[in-house]
Design a protein around this nucleic acid. Structure first.
Lengths: 198, 198
DNA sequence: ACTATTTTTGAACGATCACTCAAATGTGAA
DNA sequence: TTCACATTTGAGTGATCGTTCAAAAATAGT
């Protein structure tokens, strides 16, 4: 029927994600993408439509990865707060990881693209909102299970946790000492556990 | 002797700062700068040497502004912790300000330029470190004055405060509700005050 | 082998990029 | 008025930007 695609679509998207995550939107050129994906411009445009299209797909791919990461931490612990605290504490070794960037890609996008690429910025904002909603849902579950006191506000706690993580990841990008980042992440994990009622 | 400069140097630098703060480094072109500063490319290169030179000057100009802002809050309050808490609380109305960007310019630079412009990223990192050092010095002063307990760690608290502010400012860039940002800033101010010994 | 369909290839487009430089312009001392 | 000099002007540099598209290549059913 038709010619086969040169590469697996997931790996292609993964490489685009790594590139955009590392360099950001504006600093990444189509030529960069062509060499990283080992694909001609025509192939890329056939699949994604535009540079912005590649970026949007990469951003959603990134967000899906973070969602899975959170779910894994939640499943690995018996209570909601323990799971969230473990997730928070997992940023302890942020500087030692060999990820494309220390900072979160959604975060980087939201700050980089606010003035210049409003549509893409909106995509990033909505993905961050979805992540915050996951936190909020978990806090709500903790509340209904009695782990969190009855007067606590899950929506506020969701926003708070997201802001805390954003702070640590941005601080880590400054990269003076990995040790300090570890202290900050441990401190956050402790504060999450300290929310426990009684 | 010589021809006068077309504009006051401070205002020129201020306009460059606003532009880079808003759009970031890569998304701002020399043409953008030329029209914003109402100056030909030759004039800009004569003063700053390169686009990176303009950016570096703008970044340092921005950092100086933030330093003054902090000092003002400290002078306006009787104790160190009250001053720092007021500074933290001042981000309450972050979304209502008409600044070039909600997020901090040093923060944006540190994440945007990590992979592509290492020298400029280092400049931004060092300016952030200098800001953190200001926090640390104030916490140390609070400790020596007995406002902070003897077992507290000023260096950790400095890092912590900077990370907290980074978190709130990045969260605010997502811009879903100004009210939530206010709650987060108030919460941080409260936590700073709660550090008070006894 | 032929055909229909999908994908890749890569040269080429106009626009814009950061940057240069010789000439013009303004300035104050002599 | 003249002159030395700092500053501005703006056309022009080659390189790279995002994007297009016609032609070539690869596949699977007939």
């Amino acid at each position: 029927m038709a010619r086969k695609e040169k590469y697996d679509s997931d790996e292609t998207l993964g490489r685009a994600t790594a590139l955009f995550w590392m360099q950001g939107y504006h600093a990444t050129s189509m030529k960069d993408l062509e060499t990283a994906l080992d694909l001609g411009p025509g192939s890329i445009y056939a699949r994604f439509g535009s540079k912005a299209g590649v970026f949007e797909a990469a951003l959603k791919n990134y967000a899906a990865g973070r969602r899975i990461e959170l779910e894994r931490h939640l499943e690995a612990h018996d209570t909601v707060l323990d799971g969230l605290a473990a997730y928070a504490g997992s940023f302890r070794n942020l500087c030692e990881r060999d990820a494309p960037s220390v900072a979160c890609m959604m975060m980087k996008s939201v700050t980089e693209l606010h003035a210049t690429e409003p549509e893409l910025q909106t995509v990033a904002s909505e993905l961050l909102d979805a992540t915050e909603d996951m936190f909020t849902e978990q806090f709500a579950r903790a509340k209904s299970e009695g782990e969190l006191s009855a007067d606590s506000d899950p929506a506020f706690l969701g926003a708070w946790l997201q802001a805390e993580i954003m702070g640590i990841r941005t601080y880590a990008q400054k990269a003076n000492t990995a040790e300090r980042v570890g202290q900050l992440a441990d401190g956050l994990a402790t504060r999450v556990r300290a929310l426990r009622a009684g």
